[in-house]
């Protein structure tokens, strides 16, 4: 079974972001970029499926600027067999990304597609679900366990209040939650080998997809700052403040 994994280049999760002074967007110049953490989990799951003999080939795909090829090379170093870069400098919204991926799914006919549950920049949590809808496939979102059994897939999903297990017919779309696995690090020899693995470059136009945005970004602001608080000296003082000053307990 062929497994398709979508990855996204995002700001590194450790970076404290800055809003541009003109409030047009977040400032991404000279900021460290990396693979979205949920996408790392998606790649790891695909590699584990290959190690178990379930997956025969892993294809990594990304939609984004030329620099996003770094993240595809990372996926190749981690175990993907080849990569597809759909290159565009446009700000790609979820729907456009899902349309591009749906075309790739149509061309590649994978048995399983794995994506992260959300990207830590836009925090949208949409692309996997949108891809499933467009490709006419079932979805297993927020997966914490994935078991392929013949032509079906059992997915344990993290839902509010606990866990839910569903069975999906294959092919299917899975989005990863944090606890699905712990991603491995790329080893130096694998990073060297990854440079020789095939990487196809296409454009959204090649796939017949218009990536123009639907949502206008009017303004980006820093969140309201909290007022600096005080340090109390004892539990007594804390209880007193909560009762008589903040009045949040009685």
């Amino acid at each position: 079974m062929k497994v398709l994994v979508a990855v996204k280049r995002v700001i590194d999760y450790n970076v404290k972001i800055r809003v541009k002074p003109d409030h047009s967007d977040v400032d991404l110049t000279n900021v460290k970029m990396a693979m979205n953490p949920f996408c790392e989990i998606a790649v790891e799951e695909a590699v584990r499926l290959k190690e178990k003999g379930v997956a025969s080939e892993i294809v990594a795909v990304t939609v984004g600027p030329k620099a996003a090829q770094e993240q595809l090379r990372t996926a190749l170093a981690l175990g993907a067999d080849r990569a597809i870069h759909v290159e565009t400098d446009a700000a790609v919204e979820s729907l456009a990304a899902a349309k591009v991926l749906a075309k790739v799914v149509e061309a590649e006919q994978p048995g399983l597609v794995i994506l992260g549950k959300q990207a830590i920049d836009s925090d949208n949590n949409q692309v996997g679900q949108m891809l499933a809808a467009l490709a006419g496939l079932p979805q297993g979102t927020f997966a914490s366990e994935v078991v392929v059994d013949g032509d079906t897939l059992q997915v344990t999903r993290e839902i509010d209040g606990g866990l839910q297990t569903v069975e999906l017919s294959l092919p299917a779309i899975v989005t990863t939650d944090l606890r699905l696995n712990e991603p491995r690090y790329a080893k130096l020899p694998d990073i060297m080998k990854a440079k020789k693995k095939p990487l196809d470059v296409k454009t959204p136009a090649d796939l017949g997809v218009d990536v123009a945005g639907r949502v206008k970004l009017l303004k980006v602001e820093p969140p309201a700052e909290r007022q600096a608080g005080i340090k109390v000296g004892s539990v007594d003082e804390l209880v007193d403040k909560l009762k008589n000053e903040a009045k949040v307990i009685s």
Partner: peptide
């Protein structure tokens, strides 16, 4: 924006060919 809302609404948006605003 619970796990149910997040699971379902993007499917609607894609099938109606519209974007979605999350959370």
């Amino acid at each position: 924006s619970s796990t149910t809302g997040k699971n379902v609404l993007p499917r609607l948006a894609a099938l109606k060919d519209v974007g979605q605003l999350s959370e």
